[in-house]
Design a binder for these strands. Structure first.
Lengths: 139, 139
DNA sequence: GTTTATGCAAATTCTTTGCAATACT
DNA sequence: AGTATTGCAAAGAATTTGCATAAAC
């Protein structure tokens, strides 16, 4: 889903109002095609209040327009969710690649996570695979 | 590795001094057998300064006595590393299970991460699999 | 007109650094 | 004795809440 109009529909479907800030944030995610920290948004959009960007992410999280990416930095990071509703399966499993050189984190949509044999008694809800290494642009 | 004496040796081998704080932190990791936030340590050991606990974790990280666990919360979390040096392979690949009910995060040592076919050109350094669901104690 | 979103102020929590005092070897 | 560690002070960054104003529907 790369079309802004579709995201407007998505916002409306959740009764979220269409505002400049929300559209700008979505556009930026689409343009950058990578995981963003709130701080990235603050630097990109200094005219929006830090709290406004914070609450934009919170409301997007609530309706899974974005999702949080696990990372080791101690700072929350966010990725635009795959909103392809033509798929029947939920797309809650993600592989993310963190480049140790340039630092960017990208979702590898084409990389499926293999079935993992967990100990008996554990119920799986969601899988996140975090791969650290050198990305294709830096190698 | 569950013996405190072995951890004392480990500290000495890295020229880290044996202090009450460091031993208490290691003991607590061994006892809890789960991922801890710095805040967990602060609540458990209010008589140690917050900064002391912070630096304890930093120095443990430096020598890989602990490692950081990726998580979505935006707060750094730590796990005691597997210091089984009888293994030749580095044990940099981890599976962690986060229970959505009790919130605890545990390292599943017995769960190996399957080989993941990444796109051509990506160099893998480290793999972290984060599994969300319901743990065996809560189901 | 009603309701939601924003901006500002401010509190809270988390992370980090400097320095003098203390503890370890 | 010499060096590493700790505690205290304090700064910086990230997260969160309240409330009045402004914008969306």
């Amino acid at each position: 889903m790369e079309n802004l109009e579709e995201y407007k529909k998505l916002l409306r479907s959740h009764k979220l109002r269409i505002t400049d800030c929300r559209l700008d944030v979505i556009k930026y995610f689409l343009q950058e095609n990578r995981t963003l920290f709130q701080n990235d948004l603050e630097r990109q959009f200094p005219h929006y209040d830090r709290v406004t960007l914070y609450r934009t992410l919170i409301s997007f999280l609530k309706y899974k327009i974005v999702h949080q990416i696990p990372n080791s930095t101690g700072v929350a990071s966010y990725g635009l969710s795959n909103q392809d509703f033509t798929q029947t399966e939920s797309n809650d499993n993600h592989t993310h690649f963190k480049c140790n050189y340039c630092g960017t984190i990208k979702c590898l949509k084409e990389t499926a996570i293999p079935v993992v044999p967990l100990p008996v008694g554990y119920q799986i809800d969601k899988l996140n695979l975090i791969v650290d290494g050198i990305c294709i642009d830096c190698s």
